[in-house]
Computed example of a mutant assay.
Amino acid sequence: MEQAKLAKILVVDDDPFILDLVSIHLAQAHYTTLKASDGVQALAILEKETPDLVVADVMMPQMDGYELTRIIREQWDIPVLLLTARGELNDKEHGFNAGSDDYLVKPFEPRELLFRIAAILRRYDKPNNSINQVGSLTINRKSYEVTANHTTLLLPLKEFEVLALLGSRQNQVFQRSEIMEKVWGFDYEGDEQTLNTHIKRIRERLANIAPDVHIKTVRGIGYKLEVIKE
């Protein structure tokens, strides 16, 4: 995927060996890399640079990875992958509650790090346009608002992400697996009934404010967003 290969990644770790090791593997995979030895230095870099992803260690002096993730979540729309030597469930929960997108336990295989990074970048791969118009429906990715016929909807986040994905390419069929991966993540352990439920709810909402816009089921493949012509 070309966009992933050109992505810029900030690596944050107080261990020089890990910092260099991760940076080398990212460079070999054709990513542009930035390096910081702690959370404070990472924030200074973020004030000047806009990476596509932050890979950060949890246990660091001055500011741990949890706190760094929390600040990133408050100030920037940048995904975070946390690295840690601790694999207990409580630590993972702490990381996800801080806002991380994924969590990888040391020691890890470089290949696993790379495919997790690629998966996160695919989920954040959004079209350049922050506003998509589909029939009478306007989908605003910045404000997370959906409007039609002078009515504004604030959808639950996952419903919005599903609708925004379908609306990003009108009349294009999205496979069910692609929707699940981009909205819920490649390692989501739930079943596809979750997607069915979200599609049903979105259809009900659209019927009330934008009856000209419809989510069509393409049997055996997935869904597409289309405008119904009278």
Score class of each variant (00 low, 15 high):
L155F: 14
S168N: 00
L195R: 13
K216S: 09
E181I: 03
L154G: 01
Y188F: 15
A207F: 11
Q170H: 06
K158F: 13
R203I: 03
N171I: 01
L153A: 07
E159M: 13
V227L: 01
D191R: 06
T152K: 15
T151R: 10
I199E: 08
V183S: 04
Q170M: 08
L163Y: 05
L153E: 08
L153F: 10
R219K: 10
A207R: 14
H214T: 11
N149T: 09
Q172M: 00
N208S: 11
L153G: 09
S168F: 00
V162A: 06
E226P: 04
L157M: 12
S177T: 12
K200Y: 11
L163R: 05
M180K: 11
F160W: 11
E204M: 12
A164C: 05
R169N: 02
Q170D: 01
E159Q: 15
L225R: 02
I179G: 01
K158I: 15
V173Q: 00
W184T: 12
L155Q: 08
I179S: 02
M180R: 11
A207H: 11
R203G: 04
E159G: 03
L163I: 04
I215W: 10
V213G: 06
F160D: 09
S177C: 00
L163H: 03
F174S: 01
T147P: 09
T151F: 07
K216W: 04
T151I: 14
P211C: 02
K158Q: 12
V162Y: 10
N208F: 08
E161Y: 15
W184P: 04
H198S: 04
V146K: 14
E192R: 13
K200W: 12
N196L: 07
A210H: 08
L165H: 07
S168K: 00
R219C: 00
H214Y: 13
L153H: 12
L225N: 04
Q193S: 15
V213Y: 08
I202T: 02
T147W: 12
I199D: 06
N171K: 08
V213A: 10
R203Y: 04
A210R: 09
I199H: 06
L153R: 11
R201F: 14
F174Q: 03
T217E: 06
Y223N: 01
V146T: 15
T147M: 13
R203L: 02
D187W: 08
W184V: 10
M180F: 05
R169W: 01
V227Y: 00
V227T: 05
L206I: 10
F160N: 11
R203E: 07
I215M: 04
R201H: 15
I221D: 00
Q172N: 03
I228W: 02
K200L: 06
Q170G: 05
E204N: 13
K224R: 13
T152P: 14
R205H: 10
M180E: 06
K224L: 07
T217N: 12
I228C: 02
N171D: 14
E204D: 15
N171Q: 09
L154H: 14
E181M: 04
V162H: 06
L163F: 06
T152W: 12
P156H: 10
T197G: 03
V173T: 14
F186I: 13
N196R: 15
K216A: 09
N196C: 03
N171G: 01
T197R: 10
